[in-house]
């Protein structure tokens, strides 16, 4: 009944062993550098020379490439068609057909935007593939994220599949008593209405019990919390994070003083 809770893939790679915050900082740095840094090729180089090799170090290379392509290919196709044809201020015509003409400026803009989005999406994918959400949240909690915020994030991850299962059960129950959920779009939407009541009100009742349950486990205890799992944070990683900060400053500098 329980589906996969996250993108996480269990492997024993050096990338998996990195401190979650280090991975988070590196992901943000790569994204910022891709968006702020100079040159047409920088984002694509970040993807080809940093993210892709890293994904193989993390033993998730195949999944990484497959998911990235699946997520982004439709978007990229759309982006290239629209921008190469309709980019405002495009002058250099590469080739034309019928009433359309493909312009160099548009292609360049589409390429840069696409590769920036590619870096943004793929660096987060790599983070999620190699970092268990529980460990990431634990590390952030130990760095000052309030426990209640971490709880909301973690429980949401777990409760969404449960809600889906519950919705499916309610829908089945209603269908078995003759609710028609097929046909035109309007009819399908109308068929969803009876689902909302039991799902929402049922969940509200659950919330009270859940509150009692975590209260009974000392969640609001005033004592300092401890944790079962110890998360490693080596000096080398701390240095790497400072290096990331430097890279961000450099990228910002290249944008401000080109």
């Amino acid at each position: 009944m329980v589906e996969r809770l996250s993108f996480y893939l269990e492997r024993s790679s050096p990338l998996h062993r990195l401190n979650p915050t280090t991975k988070l900082v590196v992901a943000f740095t790569l994204i910022l550098v891709a968006f702020l840094g100079p040159g047409l090729l920088l984002p694509s180089l970040i993807f080809l020379l940093i993210l892709t090799p890293l994904s193989f170090v993390g033993q998730v290379g195949r999944e990484f490439l497959r998911t990235t392509v699946r997520l982004l290919l439709p978007l990229f196709a759309f982006l290239f068609v629209m921008q190469s044809l309709f980019y405002p201020g495009g002058k250099t015509v590469l080739f034309g057909f019928w009433i359309f003409s493909v312009k160099l400026e548009g292609v360049r803009f589409a390429f840069l935007t696409a590769t920036r989005v590619l870096v943004m999406v793929s660096s987060f994918l790599l983070l999620l593939f190699t970092t268990h959400p529980g460990v990431l949240l634990l590390d952030l909690t130990q760095r000052g994220l309030p426990a209640s915020v971490a709880y909301i994030l973690a429980s949401t991850l777990q409760i969404i599949p449960q809600m889906q299962a519950k919705a499916a059960t309610i829908l089945d129950a209603q269908r078995s008593r003759g609710l028609d959920t097929s046909g035109s779009l309007g009819r399908r939407i109308r068929a969803l209405l009876p689902l909302v009541g039991p799902l929402v009100f049922g969940s509200l009742v659950d919330v009270e019990e859940r509150a009692i349950a975590i209260e009974a486990r000392g969640f609001r205890s005033s004592r300092p919390k401890t944790s079962l799992v110890e998360i490693e944070d080596r000096p080398l990683e701390r240095a790497l994070r400072w290096l990331c900060l430097l890279a961000i400053i450099l990228a910002l500098g290249s944008r401000l003083w080109p």
Binding site: L5, P133, A150, A154, S155, Q158, D206, E209, A213, R217
Partner: peptide
Amino acid sequence: NQISGAKF
């Protein structure tokens, strides 16, 4: 409902 949801 007694499972905290915070742990995996």
